[in-house]
């Protein structure tokens, strides 16, 4: 009996372990080793810390790195600030029949690929785009303005891309919030601010953290949106990695950057969980 059960267990666990090992662990170990190697003068591979030293010595690298981290946190926060009212409206304000329809609307943009969505934004916002056209026709603008290729537009694009991943966990966590708790807080003299901060956010914390982690990681690792609508002077760290692998063909440097990004995202998430006193196991449920 025991051996039978352990056999089934083995049968189930093997593909998972294989998948984890072959597709995640193995390439990462290879990348890790790669990041500690460099070519010497004769072109042979030798152990070295030079890839990591480069990162700290070349300001453009670590500035891009910090910029990416700060913007990713900012995008996560803005996404949360935008998603909370949306999720609240869908779960608590409209009738249940209508809320399903609204969730569907929210999902719709994700039926097309991110590339198409980003080009959609570009058609809307570029100098000869739809928005400029209407502003000109209505007389609000004398000459077209370039709305692409700046940080504000990039952040907006990133928030738009990530919103769904924040709204969905928030909806599921707000659905479990008893309406009478909100009413009780209102009845006891609470205003909007205290109801949101004392009742809704503490209740929604697991959803906020799981949404936040997903949004943060997606944003940090996003390549398309910063590259296409962020323009030349708003560098994203993924572009640096891409440049190393593809443009400079320096895989060792690229691997080092990749690892730095991994360490960055892990430590920020760890810090976030510590600060809000959440456990990862609670959050991923």
């Amino acid at each position: 009996m025991r051996s039978r059960r352990s056999l089934t267990f083995l049968l189930f666990i093997t593909p998972v372990v294989l998948w984890l090992f072959l597709l995640i662990v193995l390439p990462h170990v290879d990348l890790l080793l790669m990041s500690f190697h460099t070519e010497d003068d004769s072109g042979a591979m030798v152990w070295s810390l030079v890839n990591y030293l480069n990162f700290f010595q070349e300001p453009v690298y670590w500035r891009t790195f910090m910029r990416t981290a700060i913007y990713a946190i900012l995008v996560t926060m803005i996404t949360f600030a935008v998603s909370l009212p949306v999720a609240f409206y869908i779960t608590k304000v409209v009738s249940p029949r209508f809320s399903g329809f609204l969730s569907l609307l929210l999902l719709m943009p994700f039926w097309v690929s991110e590339l198409v969505r980003v080009y959609g934004w570009m058609i809307l916002l570029r100098e000869s785009g739809v928005l400029n056209h209407f502003l000109m026709v209505s007389g609000l603008l004398q000459r077209p303005v370039e709305m692409l290729y700046n940080d504000v537009t990039m952040v907006m694009g990133l928030v738009y891309t990530s919103m769904l991943f924040m709204v969905v966990p928030l909806i599921s966590v707000l659905e479990s919030l008893d309406d009478s708790l909100i009413e009780a807080a209102y009845d006891l003299g609470g205003g909007i601010f205290s109801i949101v901060t004392r009742i809704i956010i503490p209740h929604a914390m697991p959803g906020i953290m799981s949404g936040g982690i997903v949004v943060f990681m997606l944003t940090l690792g996003n390549y398309l949106t910063p590259n296409l609508i962020g323009g030349k002077n708003s560098l994203w760290f993924t572009e640096q990695i891409y440049n190393q692998f593809i443009a400079s063909f320096n895989w060792n440097q690229g691997a080092a950057f990749g690892f730095l990004l991994l360490v960055l995202s892990s430590s920020i998430i760890w810090l976030g969980l510590k600060l809000t006193r959440q456990k990862l196991s609670q959050v991923v449920q």
Partner: peptide, 16 residues
């Protein structure tokens, strides 16, 4: 409700 001098005890109490 937050500006009325009355308080309500809910059917299921609604403790936080």
């Amino acid at each position: 409700p937050n500006r009325r001098p009355v308080n309500l005890i809910f059917q299921h109490l609604a403790l936080f």
